[in-house]
């Protein structure tokens, strides 16, 4: 079967002729350490399968998963268990808490599995319960908490093992929008302090743009584009991606540095290149001019005029690839 795919048999052909579904093929992603890598795709694009390959909850048919130079697929049962216990922990879409355990027992589950001494388990899990803001709920059962709180338990459970890799499978997708934003804030807060390598799966583009340091877009089991959020918005690789991003609020995502040109105007407010257009517009309207100077670490780099900003946040016509329009 693997050979068929390597010889170029298409997904549809494989399904029709052999009854096998090609879930993922030719997915090569370098995940940056200590950053948030978002894998984004619609349902059926293979993203949940992909994340389960990393800790081998689903066994890949072929390929390699290299973590710090070690191939996860070559690990024997014991090494794999060690990898799951100490290196990579996971947060699930539907929380997947143990319903018969209290919150504190859920948070300490990973440590209990490792047979860490009781005293240490209690201290470490309490620390994370406090950190995610669930102090006082230690002896409740999961069913007694709201969805958002349950997912905080899921997050605390994953963090309690001190694994440096965090696999988050649509972790916030089951929550309502306000709570979801809350949870994203909690995650970003934690990340600022912990610097974990996070693999975050989502189908929500806004979420991807908000938390991702790097995004890979998955379609039908293949990566259609990968790169930082800016690049994906400004240079969608194909119509699929362009269609995908046409409805997002560009003003909140596109940074001023990405649309500047080299001219150096004599006057105007100076802003950092990392500022998003929405904020830059505010600076402009307060300053009463229509050109800003873009700086990096305080040194001027170039400038952006108001009409350029407006063009950048305008919604592109659907179905047209805008590759290279801005650069």
């Amino acid at each position: 079967m693997v050979d068929l795919v390597k010889n170029g048999v298409s997904k549809q052909e494989l399904l029709n002729r052999h009854g096998s579904v090609l879930a993922l093929s030719d997915v090569n992603i370098d995940i940056p350490a200590r950053r948030i890598q978002v894998i984004m795709g619609l349902s059926g694009s293979g993203k949940s399968t992909l994340i389960r390959h990393i800790n081998r909850l689903i066994e890949p048919t072929a390929g390699e998963i290299i973590v710090d130079g070690h191939n996860v697929l070559k690990m024997n049962e014991n090494e794999l268990r060690g990898f799951r216990r100490h290196r990579a922990s996971m947060v699930f879409q539907k929380f997947a808490l143990l319903p018969h355990h209290t919150i504190v027992d859920n948070v300490s589950y990973g440590l209990t599995v490792q047979k860490v001494p009781k005293q240490e388990v209690a201290e470490r899990s309490q620390k994370w319960i406090d950190r995610v803001g669930l102090t006082g709920y230690e002896n409740h059962y999961p069913a007694q908490l709201s969805g958002g709180m349950q997912q905080r338990v899921g997050l605390a459970r994953a963090l309690a093992t001190d694994a440096e890799i965090l696999l988050m499978d649509e972790a916030f997708s089951a929550l309502d929008p306000l709570i979801r934003t809350d949870m994203q804030d909690i995650l970003l807060d934690l990340q600022e302090e912990l610097h974990k390598t996070i693999l975050f799966i989502t189908h929500d583009l806004d979420e991807a743009l908000r938390i991702g340091d790097s995004i890979a877009i998955l379609r039908d089991g293949a990566v259609v584009q990968k790169g930082p959020p800016q690049e994906i918005i400004l240079n969608p690789a194909d119509e699929y991606v362009a269609d995908f991003i046409k409805d997002i609020n560009r003003g909140r995502v596109v940074q001023i540095g990405a649309i500047m040109d080299g001219e150096q105007p004599e006057s105007g407010p100076a802003i950092d290149q990392g500022m998003v257009i929405e904020d830059a517009l505010q600076v402009l309207s307060q300053a009463g001019t229509n050109t800003v100077i873009v700086t990096k670490d305080g040194k001027p780099l170039g400038s952006v005029r108001l009409d350029k900003m407006l063009a950048a946040i305008a919604r592109p016509k659907s179905g047209t690839s805008r590759s290279g329009t801005y650069r």
Binding site: L57, R84, S89, L98, Y109, G110, V113, Q114
Partner: peptide, 10 residues
């Protein structure tokens, strides 16, 4: 999923 969670923690 609960079983998967247990498995994912080794």
């Amino acid at each position: 999923e609960v079983l998967e969670a247990a498995e994912s923690f080794g």
